[in-house]
Computed example of a mutant assay.
Amino acid sequence: MRELELDHPYTVPYKRICAVCDPYNEVAEIIEYTNCYGGAAWAKYHYSHSPLILDIRVIGNTIRYLVKAGYSNLELKPSTSAAGIESVIINGDHVSITYAGLGGGGVGATMCRACAEGVISYDVTESGGSRSAKGTISVPRMERVIIGIDDTDTKYEGATWTLCHNIANSLDSADKTYLSQALVQLFPVPEKTQNCVSTVIEFGCTNNNAKETLLQEFKKALLKYSVSNETGMVAITSFDPVDTYEYSKICRSQKVTRDFALEYAKQNNIEVLLDGNGVIGALAALAWVARPDESIIMEAEI
């Protein structure tokens, strides 16, 4: 029987950690890609008691912590609140996050997160056993770039959501990170291909150059691979695109004209990169970024 050899038996590195910030550096969303959901779910429960935490969501293999920037005093208690986020400091183009935990929570707070992709630097204490441990990681400050797309297919071939995912996946990099996709159910109009669904793609970008490169490369790929002449693509940089919800609500309840959609985009400073008839659904998708479970339900509200 083969003898098992483990290089790091007490470290389960997170795949990636990102920090998306609001324009005023007051709030951030820490997005952690997990290699072990059981451990991440444990952290999710215990971190919920941290004073800086505003909200926690699970999307696919990621856990998202909406946090206030600043320091907090953690009162760690075994079994009930054994780990947490102690501070989130946004400084220029970096975000420093300090985690703390007891026992196994301290292991997660230190090397498990320090070894994640996206971490620029780290400072950790010893952890494991009954120790109390801390770890501070530094990751790039990102802003949320949201892309809405619709009508890349015809009644004979194609599927918008698959094309968008494959494009986004191929453009994923350290300075423009593919964060999520959601399919958005629209009002079924006669012009639909079949299910009348648009797509919203979420990226985190570290700077304006990364954003512009992303949008131009995404547009170029759509022009290359779309089989429709009516493709629509729009984009907005926004931490929370709640202002686009009213338009989306209209588009999900009745037929909307292309002229109405283009005028809405103009009035709300939304960049239109491809202005085919699909721009109607592309705009309606923006409000549902990172909400893949709700976006497919017509009656859902943000």
Rank of each mutant, 00 (worst) to 15 (best):
R291E: 14
K249F: 09
N268R: 15
L222K: 02
S238L: 09
Y264H: 13
M233L: 13
I280F: 08
C251V: 03
V242L: 13
G204K: 04
K219Y: 00
L283W: 02
G232Y: 01
L273R: 03
A285V: 05
D275N: 15
G281K: 00
E246G: 05
P190H: 07
G281W: 03
V197R: 05
N277M: 10
V242I: 15
L274M: 14
L274I: 01
Q254I: 04
L262K: 15
E217I: 02
K249C: 05
N208R: 12
A210N: 07
V227A: 10
E212G: 00
A284S: 14
A284I: 00
C205L: 05
L274H: 02
A290Q: 11
K249P: 03
S198A: 15
D243F: 14
V272N: 04
I280S: 04
K266S: 14
F260L: 14
D259Y: 07
T244C: 15
Q216W: 01
T231E: 01
N208W: 08
V272P: 02
R258L: 13
V234L: 01
A287F: 05
A282K: 06
K249S: 13
T231Y: 01
Q267W: 01
D240I: 08
E202N: 12
L223R: 14
P241K: 12
Q254T: 11
A235W: 06
R258P: 03
A221W: 01
S238F: 10
A284V: 05
A235Y: 03
D275M: 04
R291A: 09
K255Y: 06
A285E: 04
P188D: 07
K266E: 13
Q216L: 11
I236M: 10
S198L: 03
E191W: 10
M233D: 04
P190V: 01
G276L: 03
T231Q: 01
G204M: 02
E230Q: 12
A290F: 08
G204W: 08
E217A: 07
V227H: 12
N209A: 13
T199F: 08
E202F: 02
E202I: 11
N195Q: 10
N268E: 07
Y264M: 07
E246Y: 09
R252N: 00
F239Q: 11
Q194V: 13
V234I: 08
C251H: 03
V227I: 13
T199E: 00
A282W: 01
R252K: 09
I201W: 04
I270M: 08
L214E: 01
M233Q: 10
T244F: 15
N268M: 09
L283F: 02
S253R: 08
Q216P: 02
T193A: 15
S248V: 05
V189Q: 12
G204F: 00
G281C: 06
W288A: 07
V227K: 15
I201R: 03
F203M: 03
L283T: 01
I270F: 00
N208M: 10
L214A: 02
F239N: 09
T244R: 09
L262I: 11
Q216R: 12
K249L: 13
D243V: 13
C205R: 05
K219T: 12
T213Y: 12
E263H: 11
L273E: 00
K249E: 08
C251G: 06
N268I: 05
I280V: 14
S198C: 12
E263M: 10
L214D: 01
Y247T: 05
C196A: 15
D293L: 11
